[in-house]
Simulated scan of single mutants.
Amino acid sequence: MIAPAIDNIIKQQTKNDHFAGVVMIANGDETLHAAAYGEVLPGSGVLHQLGSVWRWASVTKMLAGFITLQEVERGRLNLDQPVAQLLPAAPSHVGGVTLRQLMNHTSGLANPDQTALNTETGVHHWASAAEPDFKYCYGPALAAPGERFDYNACDFVVLADVLKAVTGSNFAELIDHRISKTYQLPSIRVVTNASDDAEVAGTRDGKPIQDGLRLANLSADAAIIGKPADLLKLTQLYMAGSIITDTNLRQEFGRGTPELGYIALTVWGYHAQLNGCSTPVHIIERRGHLPGTKVLTLQAPELGRSMVLFSNRDETDWGWIWQQTGFSFNIASEVFCR
């Protein structure tokens, strides 16, 4: 199904080839819009397809959040318990961090994005190394727990270790059992093999990106791949209470902290004044970005509507809804207000 008004907004973004990919929108069980736009590689004549498998990048964190909250709901985890209770062998500076601080990036842990770039590939060594170096995340801290917000892959590497300690399953197994099989979303999986990757390659300046990045090195930070349709279904299942049944816990998941830039628990949550809505709309937002691939998910829980957008153009600019301008603001206004 293609909604004309939404289609017009998206096509405005494709004119300069700064967007190409897939946009899907749902209201409850109904798909309002599902369409692919543009060529996979500029000038190739090969068009994007709805059923292609993409990198989900940092949307992976949201799924790690779902599984963590399931453990909280079952009473096996508490958001404010320190890591030391679950990983007794962890260094003291790691052990003092709480699960909440891991999920909202206030842990103060070592940050691999501060390591040197691989000059040949243009990505950090930790992301392109032949083997994952997850021990790095247990190295010297950058700040005291809770001191400041620092967007950090190590938060989710450690969170994956916590989940394994509690459940006995690694992150890939948890996604397979708790998400893919439970909700019949077969395309969703965690990449664990160094040579594995998604179907859709990223592009920059009209050319495919050859960066040497290995998704297997990214764990619960950014290693999931899957189809856009399965991500759309997942957001709708979450809002319907199928993944987390406790209403208060779902509210906490999407309740942003203003002093931390409205970060919530693996997502951003805020109330936005959109064009066409008489009152602000509560939005849960999650973005993902790996070289040449950009992902955006927007959920409006009170409306039961969500959307997922995938682009394999590094030039894609979603804009910022709070600034009331740009691609994301325009499409959110159309979907959530009209």
Rank of each mutant, 00 (worst) to 15 (best):
W54A: 13
L86Y: 02
V72L: 10
L47W: 12
L79Y: 08
N78C: 10
V83L: 09
D17H: 14
K15E: 15
L79S: 05
V94C: 10
G96F: 02
L77F: 06
L50M: 09
S58K: 00
K15T: 15
A90R: 00
E39F: 05
I25E: 02
E30T: 15
G95H: 04
R76P: 05
S52L: 08
P91A: 04
G65Q: 03
L50C: 09
E73G: 04
G65C: 08
Q49A: 12
P88G: 11
L32V: 15
D80T: 11
P82H: 07
H33L: 04
A20R: 03
Q70P: 11
V59Q: 01
F66Y: 15
G51S: 12
V22Y: 08
V97N: 02
F66H: 04
G21P: 00
P82L: 08
A26F: 10
A36V: 01
V40G: 03
T31S: 10
Q101M: 04
M62E: 07
H33T: 12
T60Q: 09
Q13M: 11
L102N: 02
Y37I: 03
W56Y: 13
G38T: 09
V94S: 07
A57V: 08
W56A: 05
E73I: 09
V97G: 04
T60A: 11
A20N: 04
R76Q: 15
I25T: 05
S58Q: 00
S92Q: 11
V40N: 07
G75N: 09
T60N: 06
G28Q: 12
G96C: 06
N78P: 05
G65M: 03
Q49C: 12
D29L: 13
L47Y: 13
P82R: 05
G95S: 10
N16Q: 14
Q101W: 01
K61Q: 10
G96Y: 01
L69D: 04
H48E: 11
A64W: 10
T68A: 14
Q70A: 07
A34E: 13
L99Q: 02
R55P: 07
Y37P: 01
T68W: 00
T31N: 08
M103F: 06
V40W: 01
I67V: 15
L87N: 05
L102G: 05
R55L: 05
T60W: 12
E71A: 11
N78D: 15
A64R: 01
E39P: 11
V83Q: 02
V83S: 01
N104Y: 01
G96A: 10
G45V: 08
V97Q: 04
G96W: 00
K61M: 06
N27E: 15
W56H: 08
